[in-house]
Design a protein around this nucleic acid. Sequence first.
DNA 1: TGTTAAGCGAGACGGTACGTCGCGTCTTAAT
DNA 2: ATTAAGACGCGACGTACCGTCTCGCTTAACA
Lengths: 190, 190, 190, 190
Amino acid sequence: MPRPLSETARQKAIDATFAILGDEGIDGFSIEAVTRRSGVAKTTIYRHWSSANELLVDALDCHIETVPAPDTGSLHGDLTAMTTSALEVMADPARRRMLLDLLSAAASDPELEQIKQALVSERTHPIVEIVERAVERGEIPPIEPERAVTFVHGPLMARTMLQGEPPTTDELPELIELIMRGLGAERPDT
Amino acid sequence: MPRPLSETARQKAIDATFAILGDEGIDGFSIEAVTRRSGVAKTTIYRHWSSANELLVDALDCHIETVPAPDTGSLHGDLTAMTTSALEVMADPARRRMLLDLLSAAASDPELEQIKQALVSERTHPIVEIVERAVERGEIPPIEPERAVTFVHGPLMARTMLQGEPPTTDELPELIELIMRGLGAERPDT
Amino acid sequence: MPRPLSETARQKAIDATFAILGDEGIDGFSIEAVTRRSGVAKTTIYRHWSSANELLVDALDCHIETVPAPDTGSLHGDLTAMTTSALEVMADPARRRMLLDLLSAAASDPELEQIKQALVSERTHPIVEIVERAVERGEIPPIEPERAVTFVHGPLMARTMLQGEPPTTDELPELIELIMRGLGAERPDT
Amino acid sequence: MPRPLSETARQKAIDATFAILGDEGIDGFSIEAVTRRSGVAKTTIYRHWSSANELLVDALDCHIETVPAPDTGSLHGDLTAMTTSALEVMADPARRRMLLDLLSAAASDPELEQIKQALVSERTHPIVEIVERAVERGEIPPIEPERAVTFVHGPLMARTMLQGEPPTTDELPELIELIMRGLGAERPDT
DNA sequence: TGTTAAGCGAGACGGTACGTCGCGTCTTAAT
DNA sequence: ATTAAGACGCGACGTACCGTCTCGCTTAACA
């Protein structure tokens, strides 16, 4: 008989959440901040989501962008394409901070941990694909795909987060060479 | 002329911080909680640390024993020792969370960025040493040390943070094998 | 559209304020003391009053008690009745202290000064009435009423505040005699 | 052997106290404010005065010149001289406030009560003298001196504290006339 | 098609923690 | 042994959000 939870309110709250994360980082995120920014009442937010984290999860969920696996014909080309696109994300400080905020928040919230997994796998799947194709082509010896992913993303992450800055574009070739050697490619061919 | 910041107060606050993390997790951590638990006044805490995060970082810092570079005679042995000890830290969710908090906070605070650098280099220096020795011994071709560090820590970080759990101890050998191959070691082990 | 500031919360805070003033004097008065005593949250108090003084003013305002002018037929009788009742207030150390606290606080807060005026005039009006009746009856020569008030309250105040103790009941007749003589009554007649 | 409590420090603190009262009013007065303004250390202030109130009282004391009993030859002249000088003190809001603070503090602190008594008697003694001389001269009938004091100070106090402002200089003659009549002077003046 | 229950904005409520200020006590070094 | 300097435990300050609640207004689905 009554009207259902309105989709407009939901969308406004989610948009505001995302806008806040981009502008102020996770520290600026609070139910009341969303209220202020979106014009959606606190009551309404609690009617849609039972906690701030759930709203966060939902907002991030809505913004997962699917990255297709490149297929250039060689592991080297595919890796180059893949890491280049990953670097674009990392090079943007706002996005970098959002990722870190998510990682740290997820460390103490199993619910966020799951949404993190979903976001991460969106990025890891293409790598799995790339590596599997390379194995089929005989470019590299068989390898457990998850381990390969670790090997591709790891150096990028370490570089970005520990050193504070992502690698520059001209450092990429050297990194890829090391990665390929680690994966067992015969010759990274120059 | 006045008395210096007292070491006892500092220690009591740090101990209380750790006790809280152990008993209630990071959610139970607050300046006032530390005050209640330690008997150290809030004002005093603020005299020692300008923010809750700094106290957290300091507590972390105090409880992470500086690991000297192992010297087992071979790159493989050194890496095993090094990564094993790194894993111990990563396996503790509280420390993992603190590291992530530090990384994300540092992303938007230059002051924290420096503290982070200090903590990170505490961990990277031993690796630089290990790698340099391996190069001297001719085990691996010459390599820019920072890049090598990236290659050792990266997979561990990716594993821990992206997948949510650090690698188990029996996965270590395989990871090390990949890392060594990436660094160009002739044959990881016979 | 939201619910209005609740009258219950307001009343509870005001009552607690008054209770504190009576029990501990103005030094015991603080927002947090009111919070503790009333069960009304600090935030709520700040929603109702923008400062501690405003609450104080409001609380005192609510407790102004109207004293009716006695009418015994003679100035001597009226004065006796009036000063006796005034003495009752002064004899209570808690009320005495409250009055002094109010006087001194009002000396640097125009807002409190006004509420003080209201409280004072509640006590002065009856005296004005008494004196005016005495003038009409020809008991005393015409006099500016405010000056007469000064003359009745003054000695009582000086006695109470400077000497530290209010006059005893058996000193009253002599004081009244002096007052009447000052006002110009032919003979205080015994 | 040790040096005694230094008079310079004492003076600097008292001067700073007065400067603060002048610049920021009594609300700006605090031990730490005096410390900041005078350069005299907190320790030193507590060595000289056991509380902020005592410092305040002392500062007041130092800046109130002891007024000797005037001797003009007539009660009327003496009273005029006496009340005029009392009015000067009362006209200064800072001193007025300080007097009230002292009175209210004394109401619940026996130690302060004594200090108050000392300050008060500094002002009452001259009046006692004046009145005794008037009795000797036969100007007024014998009277208990304390009661006379009450009668001189009372109207001034009531005027100043209840009405909020001290009487103006041109109101004084009328007040004195009333006081003299109350004391039983045959004819205040012809 | 008019009724009506639920959604909605607004925001008051009792709370917890924040980071700051001043208190009065204390410790230290320097004169 | 007094002083300037200031750290200490303490407690109140005023603010920000929390999650719950009450309020009228609005609106979509059912009768």
